[in-house]
Design a protein around this nucleic acid. Structure first.
Lengths: 214, 214, 214, 214
DNA sequence: CAATAATCGAGACGGTACGTCACGTCTTCTT
DNA sequence: AAGAAGACGTGACGTACCGTCTCGATTATTG
């Protein structure tokens, strides 16, 4: 099977192109755009290739030629649109660095892109390629930035040197994802702040710290 | 639309039953069992009513007569099977109460039932009834027990009185759900312990601490 | 594979019907009628199941449920419409019996049904079921009548007792089919008469002739 | 539309050729050969331009550049291969002249070329160009020879002077085509002989002749 | 000898119909 | 009245070819 992430490549490669009519960049973009647009309206399973093709003004076969299935298409569409937002600021304090980015994430989850993320995580439960694409294209890039942010915190003495960064980050983001996916509780900016306080407070080096929550 | 939770009632109600053949309990159970079995193999969107009916040796209409849609069926099947496990022990220490239950949860997520939970959360992303059913039938019963467990901790002085219990519980369970759904990192018993350590802080029992926060 | 000719049976059988919703006679007839109508406009290969279903106000699956392919559908449609015309008269003379029926056939070939026959013979060249259906449902019933007609001629002394009836009939009808399919020459009533004259020879009634040609 | 018969000309024409790469004779032949080969295996409607091009090692556009449609391609392929056999002998007797050639025809119909003829007549039912090509390229050349043969018979006194040659020939060949296309009866050499006897016997000038068929 | 022009192969393109599958509804007979 | 059986209209699936359209490469004539 074609590699999901290779569906539209020759981006970084040499331009050694074989014979035949070259792939239409216009069609490719129209398909990806239509996918996102439709995904924003319906869910994963309500998105049909037929609708994507029709909306993009493209033959169904052109979609199937380049993406083996719905999941690959969505993953690619999502990856090629990755929000330029969601970067980590460098405010000089770990708490604000994290909480500001997390507030952004919450805002994204609430918007149109939230529906898309939800659709991807939904579809990903029965398609390992899709969930993998989400990890590699959405989660990891941000997590790399998060590592850097945490390291700054360590340097400043805001975190213990031996902190388990993945555990810490999951403790910060896990509750957001959980509330986002299960919708059992509100996802306010205040929630983010108190979450940071709770988790980051615990991760401070040995000092007098406030107790769990408030 | 028929109430999801009313799909299989008249259980404890008055037995004023109209004329005609009564509902076949045998068919009802066969359908629910088949639903779970199939859900354990495929995902949410790969489960078809057609297959459920065939596997249960039941007419398709019988399924549709009692459950308005796939989500309701799955929710009902899931609810009627709710694991008798996943209770909270009372070990005398908050840390062990929580970590032991969380370890059980992780074990459940890894097994056949994990696939079912995954399917429900997947389907729930585009069906509010389904995600609501998950909350009400799976999440809340356990959370009620968790509240009791936390209250014991408060009584014992392991937690501050004014702790935000939902925030705390989400901080504990969020990372588990996140790793379960995104599969970006391992979900070992050790992970659970360190997660509890991080979030509950020195609410650990083993060390002499004058109080929870100081 | 389902027997072509059994597609719509239980016609002569006992009505032992199993459970389940019975087949819709209305849908069946609408499909067959639409098939003939469309076949009269386009050729064999221009007829699409999709158009038949749409025109009949029927689901595509309903067509495929009962007819395995286009050929079977056409054969059945054709058979269920078999012209009530094209019978052989009994005029008391072989020549007129034959020539009158042959003129009718020529007229049929020229009309809307001719297009259908043409389509069937066309499709039959790459589908043995279809050509077989044509033989059994169209050719044979008429040929049986033709045998009777010829036997009357024998009884009257217009034909030798040991005449090869199939050879004789092919000599009469072959030229008609040939001109019909290859369209290389006209197919007038006069042509039919002279054809009968040539092949049947002095089997003509009207004139006292010692031999075939004088 | 391009003239069917002009698809591959400039053979006998003026060689005033413009600039540009000349047509590849090699490609042309490969296409025609592949067409016949494939036509011998499948029927008319199962032959795809795609397969022809692939089998000939040629681009699809090269086929479409020179032949406007499938029918034209097949007609051209068929014409360019016209059997060098099927000539009429001059044995000194009409009966043998005809029956020998007819036997050859039957043999051809039974072989690989028979499938091709069948495919052409099949396709011709919904394409007047194709059936016309069959008439002009296959039927007429032979019929011209047949006329000559019949004229020899007239000269020898074996046929009446005023015989309708087309009617006579259709009576001889019609049964063969009919049996070939409808496959309702065998097509043996003996059949040919008895057919000749029946039809030619009738067409003799005034003499004592045997009655219809044996 | 360069410029021009038509062909070649390859193969992507927007379409159409294919034959299949599951949907949710319905109509029958049976329990 | 509910059961199973299963046919119904609907609509998306993923595939196969259609006939058209770029591509780069090739092979002629013309300037």
């Amino acid at each position: 099977m074609r590699q999901v992430s290779a569906a539209n490549n020759d981006h970084g490669g040499r331009n050694a192109r074989g014979p035949g009519r070259p792939r239409s960049e216009q069609a490719r973009l129209a398909i990806l755009r239509s996918t996102l647009k439709i995904l924003g309206k319906h869910g994963f399973s309500d998105l049909t290739i037929e609708e994507v093709a029709a909306h993009a003004g493209v033959g169904k076969a052109t979609v199937y030629r380049w993406w083996p299935n719905k999941a690959a298409l969505i993953a690619d569409a999502f990856a090629n649109s990755t929000t330029r937002a969601l970067h980590f600021p460098d405010t000089g304090a770990l708490f604000t660095d994290m909480s500001q980015q997390m507030r952004q994430l919450v805002k994204v989850f609430r918007g149109r892109r939230g529906r898309i993320v939800s659709a991807i995580l939904s579809g990903g439960q029965s398609d390992r390629d899709l969930i993998a694409a989400f990890r590699e294209r959405f989660l990891m890039p941000r997590r790399l930035e998060a590592y850097a942010t945490l390291r700054r915190g360590i340097r400043r003495g805001e975190l213990r040197k031996d902190v388990d960064m993945d555990l810490l980050l999951d403790s910060l983001y896990g509750p957001i994802y959980m509330r986002f996916l299960i919708r059992h509780d509100k996802m306010t900016p205040d929630f983010v702040d108190r979450l940071c306080q709770l988790v980051l407070g615990r991760a401070q080096p040995s000092r007098k710290l406030p107790n769990a929550s408030r």
